[in-house]
Every structure is written in structure tokens, then in C-alpha cells.
Design a binder for these strands. Sequence first.
RNA 1: GGAGGGGUUCCCGAGCGGCCAAAGGGAGCAGACUGUAAAUCUGCCGGCGGAGCCUACGGAGGUUCGAACCCUCCCCCCUCCA
Length: 383
Amino acid sequence: MSFSFQLIKKDLLTSARLGKMMTSHGVVETPAFMPVGTQGTVKSLRPEDIQSCGAQIILGNTYHLYLRPGHETIQKLGGLHAFMNWHGPILTDSGGFQVYSLGALRKILPDGVMFRSHIDGSRHFLSPQKAIEIQEALGSDIHMCLDECTPYPATLKQTEDSLALTVKWAKLCKEAKSSSTHALFGIVQGGTYLDLRRRAVEQIVPIGFDGYALGGVSVGEPRELMYAITQDITPLLPAEKPRYLMGVGMPADIVYGVSCGIDMFDCVIPTRCARHGLLFTNSEKIVIKNARWREDINPIDETCDCYTCRNYSRAYLRHLYVSGEILAMILNTIHNVRHYIRLMERIRAAINENRFLAFKNDFFDKWDKVTKNSTKEQFTGRA
RNA sequence: GGAGGGGUUCCCGAGCGGCCAAAGGGAGCAGACUGUAAAUCUGCCGGCGGAGCCUACGGAGGUUCGAACCCUCCCCCCUCCA
């Protein structure tokens, strides 16, 4: 079965949309959030946990899985799905983010990126063709073009050059694609320069991809800039293809992205923050190590239906976290992932019931309070 | 009874005349995290709004311009010998 995307509904008051992605490993309802499983695992979760959180698709990473255990090994063992025992859809990032995050360990060349492995220092050349070869060997359902995730801040010239490279590589990725069952997404770069972003759309879209991503956001730029880019550029992407806002983000960022017409999101925030003890609820951000939870018998979130909230108190979770217990990471991650997935379910229901704008406004009101609360706590904490 | 070692801020532990409110851990408190080099990182951690002052290195005296550091006595702990 090959990849396809079906647009089910368009919101009348915003650009939000409801859709379905069909892959050979199952259907993904959009707008969707994709938990990040860089190394063939969503950190601390078993596949059945991911599933019970309601996640329909997860991420894997080309660079990391190529370095260890090696894409050929994974291919030999039956592909990434079998290897990690996750039988739902997988999207693999191309290594483009590592061009950014491993900035000190790589050199960008016209034909690809020379990496010094962060594991053992060995040299590895990742070209657009190689990135596709690796992703096809992994057998993920959606492949991403190798791009340069442009850092922030970057000058106009730097961003322009970076964009040119990303466009050039996008063409090479498309040419290198040899499988018809796997989807390939193009990535729009252009930094914080809207005219470059528009140029990126003009140059990437004609190459013809199964979906389009906005990349190079959430790299330290002000939130307003990210919002401006998302609002301006998303509508320029083909309406009949899925649109993916890469690396985003906080719950409010996701709601905002949906209102701009984004269909897919991924972010390490729910999983990483869970491991670091930050838990999301609809009304507050809970730093579980805080002394105030020492004797709190309530679940993290009364309204949450996750395994953690159904069975454990804040006091116990605080104890586990403070004690450095592995279970703290597991239970916290289950909660945060479920919280994100539930957010997506609520978003889809709101769009479906023609009340997304109200949902969004209400969400931002509450989110302001969440942010204000934590700002106030920071202030009193320091005073 | 004899010989030796030691008592430092919540805990462990360095310091052994001024650069010491006292290294370094731990604990405690708070914060950050956006296509994961992250079970990570950062800040605070005697008191007083601050320059500064006050209170602190077992207790009491003393030497010195100046003592956690030197001297005397006392209290307590540990090791070895009898």
C-alpha cells in the first residue's frame, strides 16, 4: 500500500484541517503529534505504552540509527518496525537536525555533510542520496529530505546560501528515491526571512513531494517569529498534501500551528521534560520535584485518563523522581505523551464539531495563565 | 593506666596565621528544556534589602595589628598497647 493523504474537513474560521494519512503500517489521523523515538525507542516507553497513549505514528532518526546499530543491520533484521517492535507508522528525520544540533562536529559541503561521530569520533559522510538510502533500508513510512536546519540567528546571506543547499539536496533526494511505497517529504527552510521562506516554497513544491515540512523553526528564535512564519507560509503549501511543522513544540505552539493549517508535529518536549520532571496539565505545569507535592495525594491531572494519572499520586511521583528511580521517567513520560495525544484528540474533535476557533481562544486564555503562573513561581522562587 | 589521632557551616569533608562566610561532594530549594550527544543542564544554599555589618569552625581563656588555623586548660569521640 502506498502513501496517501485525504483531507476530510477544513475549518471555516481558521485554516485548521482534519485529515487522514494512509501508510502501509496504518492510518494516522491529523492533526497529529508524533512522539520522538530517535534511537528506535521513544525513551522510557515500550511500544505498547506508546500505543496505549494513543500515538498513531512516531519518529526515528536517520543519523543516529545509521551510526548505531547501522541501517544495514536493521534492514537485515527485518527493518525498523520489526527491530523495535513498533508496527505503526514511522517517520524518519533525515539527519538535517543533526546538521544543526551537532554543529561543532560536522562540516557542510556542497554534496552533503561530513560528520564526526558523536559516539567515537569516526568520520561519516551523509549525502542526500545516502540519507534516502538509509531511510529506505530502515523501511520507515515517511522519509524526510536531507536539509540544512538553518540556525538562529543567521544573516540574510547565510540563510540564502543555506536555503540554496537545501533546495539542491531536495532535488537529489527526490531523484534518489527508489521506493513507491514510502512517502518523501520536502522541507521548507529560509530562516526568519519571510521572502526567503516564500522562495523556498516556490522552489521546493515544484519538485513534487508527498508532503511538506516547515523546518528551521524552534531553534531559539522568538516565539512570535515562529508564529509569523507558520501563519504566512503554511497557506502557500499545497492544500492536498500533509503539512508538517518540524520540532514544534509547546502545547500552545501546536494549537497555533493547527490554526495555521499544520497537520503534523513532533517534539522532544513531552518526553524530555517528563524525564526531567516537568509534567503538563491543562491548567498548570507541574515540576514534580517541588516540595509542594510532597504530600499531595492527587493525580498529576484529574482530567487525564493516562495510566499514571489513574494509578499514582503526585506525592509518589515526586518521591520516585527525587529518588532517581527509573519508574519516574516511565510514568512521567506516559503522562506527558498521553497529554499531548489527548490535546490532538481534543483539537480534532473541535475541528470536527466546528468549534476550533473557540477551542483555540479558550486554550490560549488558559495557557496564558499556565505561563503566568510559572512566571510568578519563578519570581517568588528567586525572591 | 600508657601512646597516638580527631572534633569545621544540615551531613560528609578540605583548609592549618591575613587572599575564609570557609574548597569539593551530598542533601535541600528553585529554574530551563521545542525535527534528542539530554535519567541533562543552570542558579541559590549562615543572618541583615546592599557597599558593609553581625553571627560562625567542641567550650573557656590567651598570644597576635589579625586566629578555624598558634598556646593553655576543660569537655567529647576514635585507634593501638596494657
